[in-house]
Amino acid sequence: MAFLEVSHIRKSFGNTPVLQGIDFTLEKGQVLSLIGSSGSGKTTLLRSMNYLEIPQEGTVSLNGEILFDYDHPAALRDEELRQKRLHFGMVFQSFNLFPQYNVLDNCTLAMDLLAKDQAKAARQRFDQAAVHKANQEVAKGILDRVGLSTKLANYPCELSGGQCQRVAIARALCMKPDILCFDEPTSALDPELTGEVLKVIKSLKNKDTTMVIVTHEMEFARNVSDKVIFMADGVIEEEGTPEEVFGNPKSPKTKSFLAKSLESI
């Protein structure tokens, strides 16, 4: 059984079908890139895995546990949803950092709140100061990995776009997600800042970090991915290794998309 299994995901906005039956699997430690034109459903697929959208059909299971099953909507209660969401981390196109918190607090806020709720649920004593300090140490280590150890006390408005996105990556990693999702992480960045973010994402690649990346950076997708899915009109048009999809695309839609995105102006 694969680590992540997504089956028959369907989703419409009003009368517009956006996802028309998506099936794919992913192994632990693999990097999957979702490519395709705007409007092909990539972002909606990613958001469906994070429960930011609720699919109208299908299942998502992780490590054998069914996280989402449309036929059993009972699992959609807020508290359960929260637990299930934590399996996935999400990095947004527009960063979505919390502006009133500095870099370190952006990373520790959700960790602290979760620890408090878990202690409460287990009826354990909760030492807020000690937990916060421990969380800060974890966050500092992760911020160091993304090259921001000198910016801990800065506020998001004092950082460049690339630095903001690296904070957002660190913030997502702090929650120790099983799968880290990126929704066009460099689309809001100036070209000279794109590189630093892509480098960080690439540096995360190891046997324990599973990633799903929606991207328009074809070179990056080709270099970093173990698997590439090309989506068009809400279906998976083509999938395979980067060599297969980029080197030897079979579908005419894939060919035309790749030709357009690689053509120089």
């Binding site: 930011l52 929260r82 527009s94 979505n96 919390f98 959700a110 979760l114 709720d117 997502a172 929650m175």
Partner: peptide
């Protein structure tokens, strides 16, 4: 307030 703030909180496992 941008809807992204709410979404960022949700994916970090925060309650509403």
């Amino acid at each position: 307030i941008p809807v992204g703030q709410q979404e960022a909180g949700l994916v970090l496992g925060m309650t509403r």
